[in-house]
Design a binder for these strands. Structure first.
Lengths: 228, 228
DNA sequence: GTCTATATGTAGATAGAC
DNA sequence: GTCTATCTACATATAGAC
């Protein structure tokens, strides 16, 4: 069944020459600048001009390296989503290896803590990421990004939670899960609102305390919504 | 100390002639069209051209009646916010009249139910409103709208809740309150995400069931986050 | 790969006739 | 109050020199 012709059978590799160090730097700085400006001003509010300027690059570089504004936005979201999904699934795998019965708190922590630790470290890239996720989640125009970047991991966690509540419909679990993700995102997207509503005393709460409160909030909320 | 001249002392009323019926209709249809398009595409994504076209009005009418795009956005948010705040504060007043000790569930219901009833009725204007609130809450550029339209009522409810948890810092209550508002908004803003994550079975859950689940979720979450 | 120059479209606002 | 016509600015994208 094999073709007899030697090398020509395999089409000549459509692979390009490896990009130069400088090209990589340009491409990356555009990605970083885009992340910041998209998060701050939204997709329509951030122009490729401003992104290029912030990156110290040419406008034309954006189309050249990333294929246009829309494709750039997708790459920005995808880069972070992939890293975060990996961390979350790693946590889940560790739970399974420990092979005691995992609790709701374990599963929720595996999902929430990796992100909470990122923002507790104060990394502005990850604070920006919450705003991007909120945009994608609220805008049907980015449906494909959500399906590709968020849904696979979310489904795994929803199924894990559903296993703890036999007889409860998956849609109910999905709903309570979305409530929890929304609450998590609000820590970043609405930080200024929380501060504005906190009154005079700034209350130098550590991010760790906020994280713990969020996990407790979500766990209790999920139980109340799903238990009979 | 009074001027002796008769009518001229009082400056001629700067009041304009009452607007015509048609003018009112134009102004209103612009407001309605703007609400829909701002919610669907965001502030930057919705152009005044499209808004005018959707309203069946002229582009120039937008500046004439509403003073420009930014002012129009504010009016759109303010109109709904005022109506909703009134409903919420009415509910709270009824609780106080009943003068039994009000529970956390009472207070949360007074805040959440008026909005949940609006969307349970399927009114697209109110579903759109959640998206607008989410935009304003996530974007510091609209800080003034949030301070004027949302904060006064939110502060009243936060204080009511705080009274049930003596010794807990107001900032902790504000945080848990923002979690709850985020979860509430996600019912409208991320409805399509909930559906996508619910799996094959569409599960024709009534909006009333979703509302009850949300209130249970928020109440239990608040308790867990605030109780010692 | 980078950069200049430009093509082509659309944005929000308003002057002035009606 | 409405509507036409137009102003000015800025958007994304790309062709072609380097």
């Amino acid at each position: 069944m094999r073709k007899t012709s030697p090398a020509s059978a395999i089409p000549p590799a459509p692979r390009r020459r490896a990009p130069s160090r400088r090209a990589i730097a340009t491409s990356l700085s555009i990605l970083d600048a885009a992340e910041e400006l998209f998060a701050e001003r939204g997709y329509d509010g951030a122009s490729v001009r401003d992104i290029a300027a912030a990156a110290g690059a040419q406008i034309a570089s954006i189309s050249f390296h990333h294929g246009g504004k829309a494709a750039l936005f997708e790459k920005v979201v995808e880069r972070r989503a992939d890293e975060l999904s990996k961390l979350r699934l790693d946590q889940l795998a560790q739970l399974h290896q420990a092979d005691g019965q995992q609790t709701l708190n374990d599963i929720l922590s595996a999902f929430l803590r990796p992100y909470l630790e990122k923002i507790a470290a104060g990394d502005p890239h990850w604070i920006a990421y919450a705003r991007l996720v909120a945009m994608v989640s609220a805008d049907a125009r980015w449906r494909q990004i959500a399906e590709r970047c968020f849904d696979p991991t979310a489904n795994i966690f929803i199924d894990e939670i559903a296993a703890l509540f036999p007889g409860v419909e998956k849609s109910a679990v999905a709903m309570a899960f979305v409530f929890s993700v929304s609450a998590m995102l609000s820590l970043s997207t609405s930080q200024w609102r929380i501060e504005a509503l906190s009154g005079e005393a700034p209350a130098a709460a550590t991010m760790d305390a906020l994280s713990d409160a969020l996990v407790r909030y979500c766990e209790a909320g999920l139980r109340a919504a799903l238990e009979r």
